[in-house]
């Protein structure tokens, strides 16, 4: 009985235990690694010439800022539309 309880407690504790991947230290390391990769993809353009098809897309860091701003724009548009379009989940239920 007590052994059972002990085991159950252990299981519950394991369920609460945070995975190493979610530990703040790991997350910080992931962010650092990600930032380095981001910087490298832009800096690589010093060595590799991107052939722009329409001029501007070959300029330094174009893919980076264009991708970022495109996402920002889409998130903001979605946010604005959400004000008008969002309804409770049971909206159609009656």
């Amino acid at each position: 009985m007590t052994a059972d309880n002990k085991q159950r407690n252990e299981q519950e504790r394991n369920a609460d235990d945070d995975h190493w991947l979610t530990k703040p230290a790991t997350v910080r390391k992931l962010w650092i690694g990600f930032s380095i990769v981001l910087a490298l993809t832009v800096l690589a353009q010093l060595v590799i010439k991107i052939k722009g098809y329409f001029g501007v897309d070959g300029t330094f860091g174009f893919g980076a800022w264009y991708g970022f701003l495109a996402c920002l724009a889409m998130v903001l548009v979605a946010k604005a539309l959400g004000v008008v379009l969002k309804r409770p989940e049971d909206y159609y239920d009656d």
């Binding site: 990600f34 981001l38 991107i50 897309d57 893919g63 264009y66 991708g67 970022f68 996402c71």
Partner: peptide
């Protein structure tokens, strides 16, 4: 390289 920039900065 262009697509890596585009996608990774979208991730950011």
């Amino acid at each position: 390289l262009f697509y890596l920039q585009l996608l990774l900065f979208s991730g950011l």
